[in-house]
């Protein structure tokens, strides 16, 4: 009788190795980021419904549950950004006869871009909405 060997992987395979645990944590950042994206989507929906609905959405952002969600999403987004940028030089390999860029330069460029874009966005929000500046 034919009896092929069946490799078995226990369901909790990722729990017992720190590298696998870090991998699963990185993959898990998708869940809070999905919920945060749905939060943004509801904002666009309420904006389309009118000023009263949009005002209610702004107030809803300040409820404890939404503050906790945004806090967890912020931690997830930071972990995502760090791990994503670290992977870029492994995926984006620029090594042809015409153009050759060392992986550490690719990494540094993406680190600077991520830092600049994120800080720029926060700066723009503060600059446009700071109460004293009044727009």
């Amino acid at each position: 009788m034919r009896k092929p060997w069946q490799p078995r992987q226990p369901r909790d395979w990722w729990l017992h190795n720190p590298a696998y645990r870090r991998y699963m944590l990185r993959e898990a950042t998708a869940l809070p980021l999905l919920l945060y994206t749905l939060l943004l989507l509801t904002g666009i929906y309420q904006l389309a419904r009118g000023p009263v609905a949009f005002g209610a959405w702004l107030a809803w952002l300040q409820t404890p549950a939404m503050l906790v969600l945004q806090g967890i999403a912020l931690a997830a987004a930071l972990l995502h950004a760090v791990t994503w940028v670290a992977l870029v030089p492994k995926i984006l390999v620029i090594d042809s006869d015409r153009l050759r860029i060392a992986p550490r330069h690719v990494l540094r460029a993406h680190q600077l871009a991520a830092l600049g874009c994120n800080l720029g966005l926060i700066g723009a929000t503060l600059w446009l909405l700071w109460p004293a500046g009044g727009h």
Partner: peptide, 27 residues
């Protein structure tokens, strides 16, 4: 998400507190 994710979340966290006039923000 790597480029603007954290910045966007900080912005929406600050948004309700920075908004003096929700009507003007809506417009």
């Amino acid at each position: 998400l790597a480029l603007i994710g954290p910045g966007l979340i900080v912005s929406t966290l600050l948004l309700p507190w920075l908004t003096q006039d929700p009507q003007a923000l809506y417009v």
